[in-house]
Amino acid sequence: MIQYVSIVLMLIGIYGLLIDRNIIKIIVALNIFEVGLNIFIVSVGFVSGGVAPILTSVNSNSALIYVDPLPQALVLTSIVIGLGTTALALAIARKMYNAYNSLDLDEIGGMDND
């Protein structure tokens, strides 16, 4: 069930990328895509009936059914990468605003299309 939600989120993100012209909105759409992706990754590791993969005083037996911890580690990396990319994108957006005084991709000039 949650996987369908994540796929819908990814599609919303891509839809946003397809139709948005405002730079900030594109970055937001990109983030929605990444959120959907991260949720999907975590959901892959789910084992029904499993508990969090941490040895605590309550769950101290290592033979219990644990949720797969690897995807959770992957997601941490992915979130950080997404953070870095978003920061860079916002920096570039700031530079574009300084140069062209507009946040609309269509209005910003640049090399002619052909």
Binding site: L18, I19, D20, N113
Partner: peptide, 12 residues
């Protein structure tokens, strides 16, 4: 083209 939307459309 220089807009990401065209390429994303192609990808999809």
């Amino acid at each position: 083209s220089h807009k990401p939307s065209v390429t994303v459309l192609w990808v999809m």
